[in-house]
């Protein structure tokens, strides 16, 4: 493909790539570098006026944050909620996505628009009135409250991703398997599963990450004692603002998400590939 580009265009591309790299450096590398530096400020040597750089660096703060902030409990809460939510969301989304991806029926377009409703709802509005509803129903379990809230709000993502997967399943494969007298299970295993699997896993991971990241519902429903990772971070940015500690918590929040998202993207790519092959 590269031969298609004229030399002038090639130089322009190179200049633009360089510009993108510089921008990336200032928008991401530098801020993260600053956060790393702050998180390494030694707890007994303040970084104060007029020091331009922290006087002493150490890993002590990381150890302290890990052992004293309740971060461990928050991680447990976040991850159990996210696991419950991602499984529940996928189970609920599967039948609906099947209908959208493999069936034609009256009102399909309208129904698809309706599934997007939670995306159009400002999350703080949802959270505040959702809490009122929960207390009217007498549901005091914050775990259940947050899990239900997340499940409903993340259903649109799961339905959308799985719809694409279902529509990528090749009808001729299904027909061929049926003609050969394959059982339903065999049809599912050979015609559906290979195409569905990457989309399924990607949906699982994306819902998982979005649940961990969700702030409004976790904050309002979970307050004050059911903490998730974002609510801890919010308290470190507000009432309990101690910059070096906030830096450490921020970094702890970012790493697992980056890893999971990279996996999800890889899966989505292969889902896209098999989906495209399905059309051939």
């Amino acid at each position: 493909m590269a031969t298609l580009f004229r030399p002038a265009e090639r130089w322009r591309n190179r200049a633009l790539i360089l510009f993108a790299l510089v921008l990336f450096f200032f928008a991401l590398v530098l801020p993260f570098g600053m956060a790393v530096l702050w998180s390494l400020v030694d707890p007994s040597h303040p970084w104060a006026y007029p020091n331009v750089l922290p006087p002493v660096l150490s890993f002590r703060r990381w150890v302290e944050i890990w052992t004293t902030t309740g971060l461990q409990q928050a991680l447990v809460n976040s991850y159990t909620v996210a696991l419950t939510v991602s499984i529940a969301t996928i189970l609920l989304a599967l039948p609906t996505a099947f209908a959208f991806g493999r069936m034609e029926f009256r009102g399909k377009a309208a129904a698809q628009v309706l599934t997007l409703l939670p995306l159009a709802m400002p999350l703080f509005v949802l959270a505040i009135f959702y809490v009122t509803i929960l207390s009217k129903l007498g549901i005091y379990s914050r775990f259940l409250g947050i899990a239900i809230g997340h499940t409903v709000c993340l259903l649109p993502y799961a339905i959308r991703l799985l719809t694409v997967s279902f529509s990528g399943v090749r009808q001729d494969l299904i027909d061929a398997a049926r003609d050969l007298g394959a059982s339903r299970l065999t049809v599912f295993r050979h015609a559906y599963l290979p195409v569905l699997k990457p989309g399924l896993l990607a949906a699982l991971i994306i819902v998982f990450i979005l649940s961990i990241e969700e702030f409004a519902i976790s904050y309002i429903v979970g307050a004050p004692d059911f903490t998730t990772v974002p609510t801890i971070l919010f308290s470190y940015l507000g009432y309990n603002f101690i910059r070096p500690s906030a830096a450490a918590v921020s970094l702890i929040l970012v790493v697992p998400n980056v890893l999971l998202m990279l996996i999800a993207e890889r899966l989505l790519k292969s889902a896209g590939a098999s989906g495209a092959a399905g059309k051939g």
């Binding site: 609906t96 996505a97 129904a111 599934t115 259903l155």
Partner: peptide, 15 residues
């Protein structure tokens, strides 16, 4: 198809 829509769509519409 409408029955299949229920698990995904009903929670959204209800909430």
């Amino acid at each position: 198809p409408y029955l299949l829509l229920i698990p995904g769509l009903a929670p959204i519409i209800v909430l």
